[in-house]
Each structure stands twice: as C-alpha cells, then as structure tokens.
Design a protein around this nucleic acid. Structure first.
Lengths: 333, 333
DNA sequence: CCTGTGAGTCGAACCGATTCGACTATGGTA
DNA sequence: TACCATAGTCGAATCGGTTCGACTCACAGG
C-alpha cells in the first residue's frame, strides 16, 4: 500500500503539503492541488487508519455492544442493529460490533485500547454492570434502554409506562373488564430488564384505576414451550382480552389461535407491543404500540456523533423517552 | 490513558523492556517482571490499538461484510453473524461489521485503509462485484456463498445441489409423483444468488430422473404478499407434496395451512430448507435440510484466522461445500 | 521605499507502540 | 585465566499519518 510519503514524492512536494491538501486545513495552490490529486489517483492512496488514529486520537469507529440473552427473542435485536449501522455510516463512522458475553470486560478492553471514539449500548439493564466501567472511560456513551442511574449518558428508550397505559386504555374504552397480561420471562425481571416492569407496573395500575381485573403470566421465549404455554393460557382463559408484551409469544399467537379456532377480535381481543417491521415479518394482525427500534437506534447514533464531534461541554447528556404510538389493526372490540 | 512510557517510568525501566515483558519475546528477570506487572495494574494500562496496529501492521480486527437485500428474509442473516462474532472473539479478533449498500466501495475503503486484517463476505453472489476489489487487496478473504470464480478465497457453502436431490429423493421414496417447488424470489436469480439455481436445477433434474412432475413458483418475501401467494398456490394445488426453499414462505406456511384446515402430512407433505434454530424460532414442524449457518460461519472464521496468522503460503485456499443433512420431523408421507 | 499581511510550502516534532542491534554482567568451559 | 554464551536491559529507529512553527515570496498600504 502506498503511503503519504509516496504520494508526496510522486507529486514533488512534502508530506505535510499532501496532508493539508487532503484536509483542506491550509490553502494549497491550484496546480499543487492537482498534482497531488493525480498522484493519489495513480497510486491508489488511502490514508492508513491506524496511523491517523494515532496522530489524531480519533478512530471514526463506534463500538456497538449487543447482548444476546437466551431469555429474549433474537430477531428483535437485529431491528436495532441495522439502523444503527446505517446511521453511523451516514455520519462517517464504522461499527465495531461486540457480542462478547462478558459485557463489562469487553467495554473495558475496547475502550481503554482506544479502538473506538464512542459507544452504543443496547439492551441496557436497570443495574447494568457495563455502566460503571463506561464511566471511568473518556469516550462518550449512548444507550437504548433506561438504567437506574443514567447520569452521564445519552439515553433513549420507549416510554414503556405510557405504552402500558395506552393499551389498557384502549381495552377499557371498549368495555373489557378482565384481561390477560403476558409479560417477558421472569428471568428478564430478575436480571433487571427495567422495561419489563415499567410496562407491567403502569399497566396494572391503570387497570386498577378502571377496576379491571388482570391475570398476568410470565411468557416463554423458546419453542416448543411457547406454544405449550399459549395453549395452557387459552385453556384457562376467562378473560375477553389479551395484552402481549413478549416477542416470542406474540409471534406464535396467530397459529395457536388458528389451530384452536379462536377468532380475533370476535372471540378475543388482542393487543401487543411490537414494531411495524416485526409485525410484517410475522404477519401479526394485532393492534399494537409501535416500539420504533429504528428510531431509537438512530437517535442514539445522532446523540453520540454530536458528542464525539462537538465541543466537550456542549449540552449535558440526558434521558429521552419517546412517546409511544398505537397502531390500530382492528384486533379489539 | 497511560502509555507504555508511563509504565516504564513507574517501573524504572525502559519502554522496550515493558514491551518485551508484555510480549514475552525476550526474557525478563523475575523481579523486573513483577515491578512492571505492578505498574501496569496500578496505572490501568492497556496498549493503544492504533499505535500497535501501526507498529505491527496487525489490527486484530476482521471485517464482516453483510448485505441485506430486500428480497431476502432478514432474520436468516443473524444466524450467520452471531456465530462468526463469537468465533472471532475466541480467536482474539474483533468484528468490524459493514452493512454499507455499496459493497465494492466499502471493501475498497476498509481494506485499503488497513482497518482490518482479513475479511468475511456473507451472501456472496455468482458474479459478486466485491470479489474483484478484494483480489487487489493484500488481506485474505473468506466467504459464505459460492461465487463463479472462487479463486484466491476460502469459500464455504452448503452443497445446495445435493440438498435439492436429497429432498426430491425423500419425496420420491414416499411415492410422490407431482410436487410443488417454492423457490426464492425471481430477483434473487437475476442478481446471481447462485445457491438458488444450484438447488433448483438439481431438484428439477433429480425429479425428472424419477419422472416426477414439478410445478415451481418464485416465492415472495414480504407480507402480506407472502400469505396471499401461499393461498393462491394452495388454491391451485393438485400436487401431493411441497418443497419450500424460501425462508419467508416457509415461516408463514403453518398459519396459512392451519387457516385453510390443511393437515400435514395427512393432506399434504412438506419439506424445506432451514436451520434448526430458524425452525425453532418459527415453530416449523417440517422435515428439512439443515442449512447450518453457524457451522458455515465458524468454518469461515477458522480458515481466515489461519490464513491471517499463519505463513503466507500455507495451503492454497479452496472451496468446501458441506454435506447437507436431512432432519426428519415427520411432515411427509 | 519600507513594512505588514497572507498565501503556499517545508521541516521537524509527535502520537504510542514494536523491534533490532548493542551493551553489560554473569557463569561455564577450555 | 582468557573466552564465550546467554540472560537482561537499553537506546534508537520505525510504522504513517497530523500539525505547529518558520520560511519565502508577492503584493498592498502608508
């Protein structure tokens, strides 16, 4: 690979001149500009990323830390990753994707070696062990998922409490007095997936205020347990409506309902929590709160890019809970 | 962040001594070893990745180039990405994930800037425009998907032709004389998704040798077109068996069959092409050829790592088509 | 005519590691 | 006793960029 030195020689100028021609940080005469351009084209020169990182302490790489929990439904994660990757590229950054099981260790390793200029954390838990590590590092961090203490980071998440209320309201308005609530797996609550109880607490409270009786189940995430449990729940059903906050359960619901000959919304009303893409993927005909993974991912990238590029003390990082929005697909009555 | 210089000062030795203590490439006295270790621990030193890359011309990063085509079913891709990421980390490498739409340009950009030591290409097309670019670069490449000219790369793919034969054999043995074949979208054939016609050609040829009549359809990949088309196909069905080589179509098949009251295998036999994970995700109860995305991904990483680490002329890179294996889930008769 | 200014360029220092060659003890061998 | 490996360490060069300070030259203003 040719170096900047080769280009300089070829164009008959010094290394610094080539560098300035490339960055435009000092003025260069038209003809020198052209000679350098020709040399670069002819030699096929591209600046070496490592050298540039060393000199500028900027890598133009964002670390994307993804945790794949076995208690969650994997296709859902991809909905965040892709928009983030695209948004990052649009802003001139590449993505170092880290799926290491030991999150805190991975954060430590990647950040202290200076491989990335900033970090996006997905699937952040209430007491996420990655956060204390992040705080010791100089790179900024943005995240999707609300931790107990978000201080110092740009945090984006859906307003799950509001989402819970909206769905309960939706059913209450239609006269439902008894509903089933299917939540994420119990293990999600235990390891601190805060979105789970933010949603459930708000839904239960709102239901209570209407005098609606709620029976709630921790849902499964792996087949064949998912289908078995759905059948059990439906066997025991007395309620007229179901709220599903569990990707795997709602993805499997249509076929289980079909097989039992249960019609929606004629026999039972169903509402859920999923993105439009997810709904299309699994042909889900249910009214749902849009979870907007693409929007959250892009917001995180934007905030991070601003913080990496901009002056240090621009604005204090903060939490943004985006307002949930219901998409009525006519699955309630 | 502390540098190796700080460590050296702190331990009262020279930079080179610290470096040798870290790499073990020269012997260091026990006590110096310990002083350096203490200094590193106390200062929290981690070598700077950029500087190391510059000095060694090794980044310990693998570029993973993923193309997300709208004519393909996205969850399938994740099955390759995760095992690759895990395998890479086990070998000491991190993953730079590139999803840029303009593949050749991205390859050029990343490789010539020396950001990665090697490359894995996913979803390689028959005449993949990324390959000519790769050939001009010095970094080795491994890929999943068989191109027309695989020369110079480690290529891994399922033996789709054999898979096609196996499924036809499976149906032929059970006496089926007329079958439906649902393939990937027409667009996949047009842009050179070779796996599609390798499978179809072999299946058709094998069917012909048995005197089996095959009616074949290009499947859809997006809802609601998928369900509509499935219904149309089933409306016009005269055949006793269906071979599905299309992720989106087979994922939607159970609910469509349920809704039509068509039983498997009583009313129709169904076989497909999907991985065990994919089948579990969508609760697919069909006999299928296992597509082994995890195995293919790991093979690619292993081959690449060997070529990056090992001496230049170890063994000539080559093509490995892994033997397909059928999983009988009792969906045929 | 002298001075100040800005455009255009160069040389050298620097970023933080690795690695080669050379140097000094130390102990073993002839 | 002289000589030679070998272990252990250091200094300096190097990787390929960026950036600061200084220099030259032309031109405008007083």
């Amino acid at each position: 690979m040719p170096t900047i030195q080769d280009v300089a020689r070829h164009a008959g100028v010094s290394r610094s001149t080539v560098s300035y021609a490339l960055s435009g940080k000092r003025s260069i005469s038209r003809e020198t500009q052209e000679r350098i351009g020709a040399a670069i084209a002819e030699l096929g020169f591209t600046p070496n990323a490592g050298a540039r990182a060393l000199a500028t302490s900027q890598t133009m790489v964002i670390g994307l830390f993804v945790q794949f929990f076995e208690d969650e439904f994997s296709p859902a994660m991809l909905q965040y990753v892709l928009p983030i990757s695209d948004a990052a590229r649009e802003a001139g950054y590449d993505i170092l994707m880290v799926t290491e099981a030991d999150g805190p260790h991975a954060v430590q390793r990647i950040l202290s070696s200076g491989m990335v200029d900033g970090v996006i954390l997905l699937n952040v838990a209430h007491e996420d062990p990655r956060l204390p590590v992040m705080r010791k590092m100089k790179q900024p961090g943005a995240m999707v998922g609300l931790p107990r203490n978000p201080e110092g980071f740009d945090v984006f998440d859906l307003d799950f409490a509001e989402a819970g209320k909206i769905l309960v309201d939706h059913l209450a308005e239609r006269g439902h007095r008894e509903v089933i609530l299917i939540t994420p797996r119990q293990h999600v609550y235990e390891r601190g997936g805060a979105y789970a109880w933010r949603f459930r607490d708000a839904a239960l409270q709102q239901a209570a205020s209407y005098g609606i009786r709620v029976r709630s189940y921790y849902g499964q995430t792996q087949q064949p347990a998912v289908n078995d449990q759905l059948n059990q729940i439906l066997d025991a059903r007395e309620e007229s409506a179901i709220i599903v906050h569990n990707d795997a359960m709602i993805a499997a619901l249509p076929s289980v309902l079909y097989s039992r000959g249960v019609g929606v919304p004629d026999d039972v009303s169903v509402v859920g929590m999923f993105s439009e893409d997810f709904g299309r993927l699994f042909s889900l005909p249910y009214t749902a709160v849009e979870t907007s993974p693409d929007k959250l991912g892009r917001l995180a990238v934007q905030a991070l890019v601003q913080r990496m590029a901009g002056p240090p003390g621009a604005t204090a990082p903060g939490v943004e809970l985006i307002a949930p929005h219901i998409t009525d697909r006519g699955s309630t009555r």
